[in-house]
Every structure is written in structure tokens, then in C-alpha cells.
């Protein structure tokens, strides 16, 4: 089973040379720490920055330079700043190659719910609906089951949706799965020490297992 860092490490392997990548809040943010040094990747922050760098050293924080999680960050050489409309313009126009975000639920046809729980204080969708509606390559980083032990990989989402038919790949503490175009979670890899049966038990939606499922290498 993977911890959060492990999920981030595995997702980092999906980041390819030349990609522009948008990372959501939570586990996705950790992915930046594991992108191989020998590839060229530019991080987009939807509040208006390409070329996001690491957190600043103490004493070097700039209140005018933050990421979409409102954390102080730095700008790398070659970065570019722009307004919010242009930021979502490049997202809508599919210039961003990969979007990695968290979720509360994903359905077997790629629907995602990650912004609202009825009866609880709703904070808003931020940029998530724009990202999932436009991005062609969306990876979800999340736990396989919720705190109550219920599967988050479902036949249909039960929570209000953020977007439909959009998630392509899911990485959890148990597995790597593709969401197939015709529906279903195809099991690609098992986390170290996790069996196919463990994954079947934790997956409420249609799970497709073909042949030997390799253990992931991270």
C-alpha cells in the first residue's frame, strides 16, 4: 500500500518531457517533488503563472507571488505571469498537457465529484470545473476508499458532479487504473503488497482485470 508520497511518486512517472502541467491542491502538489530532473516540465498555476518554482526560503516570501492554493511560491527563470482570463484561456484551449487533481468520487464512466458535500459548508469549485471540462489528460490522485471505508470508485457518483466523462487515469494507495472510454476501471498495476482481491473489494464500480496485473515500480 502506498502513502501520499508514494501516490505522488507514481503519478510523477506519468509526467513527460515537454509537458505543461497543472497540479491541484493536496497530493497533486506533492507530485512536483518527484518529477525527474532530466525532463523539462513547466508547472501552471491557474491564478496566473507558468513556471512555478519551489516554496521560497524563509525571509524571501513575496506576498505578490502565490500559487492557486494561496501559498507563497517562487518563479523559475523563464516563467510568465498573466491574468485569470488568459490562464483559463490556455486551459480551455488545451495548451496544458496534463491536469492532476484530487477527488471525492470517480465513476466508471469518468465522472468526477470533488467540490461539494450536501449538508456541509460548500467552499466552491474554484477552477476545478474549468480544468476537468477542458483538459484532455486528467489523472486523479486519491484514496481508494473514504474515511467510512466506502469505495470512491463507483458505478455512478453520488455527490454533486464537478465534470462528466473526463477522468482518464486514477492512482490510489492500492492501484493504478485507467478509466476506459466505454466505461469501467481497468486495473493496470497493484501497489506493493496489495492483491487483486484487495482492489476488487475496495472498488464498487466495474473493475476490469485482464491477465497478470504487475506490481507497480516506484
Amino acid at each position: 500500500m502506498l502513502d501520499k508520497e508514494g501516490i505522488a511518486k507514481r503519478i510523477a512517472k506519468e509526467v513527460k518531457d515537454g509537458y505543461y502541467v497543472n497540479l491541484g491542491i493536496g497530493i497533486p502538489t506533492l507530485v512536483a517533488n518527484y518529477i525527474p530532473e532530466n525532463i523539462d516540465v513547466v508547472l501552471q498555476s491557474e491564478n496566473g503563472l507558468l513556471g512555478m518554482g519551489p516554496f521560497p526560503f524563509e525571509g524571501e516570501e513575496d506576498p505578490d507571488t502565490i500559487n492557486a492554493g494561496k501559498q507563497t511560491i517562487t518563479k523559475l527563470p523563464g516563467s510568465a505571469v498573466f491574468d485569470s482570463a488568459l490562464s483559463f484561456g490556455m486551459i480551455r484551449a488545451k495548451k496544458v498537457n496534463l491536469t492532476i487533481l484530487g477527488a471525492m468520487e470517480v465513476s466508471e464512466n469518468g465522472d468526477i465529484a470533488n467540490w461539494k458535500i450536501p449538508g456541509k459548508m460548500v467552499k466552491g469549485m474554484g477552477g476545478a470545473m474549468d480544468l476537468v471540462a477542458s483538459a484532455e489528460n486528467i489523472i486523479v490522485a486519491m484514496q481508494h476508499v473514504n474515511k467510512a471505508g466506502e469505495s470512491k470508485l463507483l458505478p455512478n457518483c453520488t455527490l454533486p458532479l464537478t465534470g462528466v466523462n473526463c477522468v482518464k487515469k486514477i492512482v490510489t494507495e492500492l492501484a493504478v487504473l485507467d478509466v476506459l472510454p466505454d466505461g469501467g476501471f481497468k486495473l493496470l498495476e497493484r501497489a506493493p503488497g496489495v492483491t487483486v482481491e484487495d482492489i476488487e473489494k475496495a472498488t464498487a464500480g466495474k473493475l476490469i482485470v485482464e491477465g497478470e496485473v504487475p506490481e507497480m515500480v516506484i
Binding site: P54, F55, E58, E60, E61, D64, K70, Q71, T72
Partner: peptide
């Protein structure tokens, strides 16, 4: 004043 909402830093 330029308040910072999430002051986040790394170690030197």
C-alpha cells in the same frame, strides 16, 4: 499591508 494567507517556506 499585503497580508500573506498561506506563508509557506522551505529550509535552506
Amino acid at each position: 499591508e499585503k497580508r500573506i494567507e498561506q506563508r509557506t517556506v522551505r529550509k535552506r
